[in-house]
Simulated scan of single mutants.
Amino acid sequence: MASVEKVSIALTGEQVAALKAAVETGEYATTSEIVREAVRDWQLKRELRQEDIQRLRQMWDDGIASGPAGAQDMKKLRQEARARLEGAKKVAGNAD
């Protein structure tokens, strides 16, 4: 196990009560275990967000590199978008 360093954090009474309740019900052995899991989840979320940013930057660069879009028929684009929206609504309605 990696070296452990103690830190102090401030939590609301409600948060502390939730931590203690999770320990009392046996979901976790200690409140520290809960906090470590929360930090691991935060780290993963942060890493995924950075990957998303990198993907968006790559897509942006690819779009710029592809050159100008040229003239577009806005009426046709709106019709296509509405058709896709209606299709998505139908699919969502069938998912019930």
Rank of each mutant, 00 (worst) to 15 (best):
M1A: 15
A2P: 00
A2G: 01
A2H: 04
S3G: 09
E5K: 11
E5V: 11
K6Y: 10
K6R: 12
V7W: 04
S8W: 10
I9M: 12
A10Y: 05
L11H: 01
T12K: 09
G13I: 09
E14P: 00
Q15M: 14
Q15A: 15
Q15F: 02
V16K: 11
V16A: 12
A17N: 06
A18C: 00
A18K: 04
L19E: 02
L19N: 03
L19R: 04
K20D: 09
K20P: 00
K20A: 03
K20N: 03
K20T: 13
A21C: 01
A21L: 11
A22E: 06
A22L: 14
V23Q: 02
E24F: 00
E24V: 03
E24D: 07
T25H: 04
T25V: 14
G26F: 01
G26S: 03
G26Q: 01
E27D: 06
E27L: 10
Y28L: 04
A29W: 00
T30M: 08
T31Y: 00
T31P: 01
T31E: 07
E33Y: 04
E33Q: 12
E33T: 04
I34A: 00
I34N: 01
R36D: 08
R36T: 06
E37P: 04
E37W: 05
A38D: 00
A38F: 04
A38N: 04
A38G: 05
R40P: 04
R40A: 03
D41M: 01
D41R: 08
W42D: 07
Q43M: 11
Q43F: 12
Q43W: 12
L44T: 14
K45G: 14
R46T: 14
R49V: 07
Q50F: 10
Q50C: 12
E51Q: 13
E51N: 03
D52R: 11
I53F: 08
R55C: 09
L56Q: 03
R57V: 06
Q58I: 06
Q58S: 13
M59H: 00
M59A: 07
W60M: 12
W60V: 13
W60E: 10
D61N: 08
I64T: 12
A65N: 15
P68H: 05
A69Q: 08
A69M: 11
A71H: 15
A71S: 14
Q72V: 15
Q72T: 15
Q72P: 00
D73P: 00
D73L: 07
M74A: 11
M74P: 09
M74Q: 11
K75G: 15
K75W: 08
K76V: 13
L77C: 13
R78F: 13
R78W: 04
R78G: 01
Q79E: 15
Q79L: 15
E80F: 07
A81L: 11
R82K: 12
R82S: 11
A83S: 13
L85A: 10
L85G: 01
L85W: 10
E86S: 08
G87N: 12
G87C: 03
A88I: 09
K89W: 03
K90W: 06
K90A: 06
A92R: 11
A92Q: 09
N94F: 09
A95W: 12
A95L: 14
A95I: 15
D96G: 04
D96P: 01
